[in-house]
């Protein structure tokens, strides 16, 4: 316990907040907090933080364990008898292991993972730019379209997302695994930015929308013919999906 003349530290208050003091220390802390408005405010803030966390991540039902977790809890058996996890963990490892023969319904090919990661990286790199977010601004629309189309090797017209409040800022080209990628950037009235990354792919394919996310940044990926697309932004999945759908329809 701190000496009565020493201000209460956050560590002392945290031990109090998380009920880690014995009865005597707890009582003397409570007495000191009662005369310390700053400490009271801090404790109230922490209680609000705890409540926000509990709301964000509510408790899991004890009764509804997925089969694979019940199987994992069974007494030890020969390893082969334990059902493997869904193929999704393989995706998780793709970036690290590379070229892991992906199979299963949910597993994208490594090229798709590469494209989604490149798109997230491009977003992270350029969205924070204040002075040079784009190489060619939307005011030079014809030049922008012609230049990016020529470099990517396919006719590209940036979709009109103004119905969702996003205006085209411009674009740039970037190196990509199989050639050159184009990046279009959009911004809405609140300053939220959105990028559409388009890169040539080695294989021709049409795919469903796939989701890629890292932290607060969300991305939707799809492939149409020999071009892969990824729309990336910091917004809810539903909003992003509506925007990606609009872009997909316009770019068909």
């Amino acid at each position: 316990m701190p000496h009565p003349d020493t201000p209460l530290s956050e560590e002392d208050l945290l031990a109090y907040h998380h009920d880690a003091l014995d009865a005597r220390d707890r009582a003397s802390m409570a007495a000191r907090i009662a005369t310390d408005p700053a400490a009271q405010e801090l404790l109230a803030l922490w209680t609000r933080q705890d409540a926000a966390l509990a709301t964000l991540y509510p408790p899991e039902e004890a009764t509804a364990l997925p089969d694979r977790l019940n199987a994992a809890l069974a007494p030890p058996r020969p390893p082969a008898a334990v059902p493997r996890r869904t193929p999704r963990l393989a995706l998780f490892a793709l970036g690290a292991l590379g070229g892991w023969g992906a199979h299963g319904l949910f597993a994208p090919r490594p090229a798709e993972t590469d494209l989604a990661l490149a798109a997230l990286k491009a977003y992270d790199t350029y969205v924070v730019e204040v002075v040079h977010p784009v190489e060619v601004p939307a005011s030079q629309r014809d030049h922008l379209e012609n230049w990016i189309s020529k470099r990517v090797g396919s006719r590209l017209v940036p979709p009109d997302l103004s119905a969702s409040g996003f205006a085209l800022m411009g674009g740039r080209v970037l190196p990509a695994a199989d050639g050159t990628a184009g990046l279009f950037m959009y911004e809405n009235a609140e300053g939220a930015r959105l990028t559409l990354y388009v890169a040539p792919q080695q294989d021709t394919a049409d795919s469903a929308f796939r989701y890629a996310g890292e932290g607060a940044t969300q991305g939707l990926y799809w492939q149409e013919g020999r071009l892969g697309y990824a729309m990336v932004g910091q917004m809810s999945r539903d909003s992003l999906r509506a925007l990606a759908k609009a872009a997909y329809d316009q770019m068909l």
Partner: peptide
């Protein structure tokens, strides 16, 4: 292992 976790899932599975 996954400095940049590359989670890709079909939207339908979300």
């Amino acid at each position: 292992q996954a400095a940049r976790p590359g989670h890709l899932v079909p939207v339908e599975a979300l």
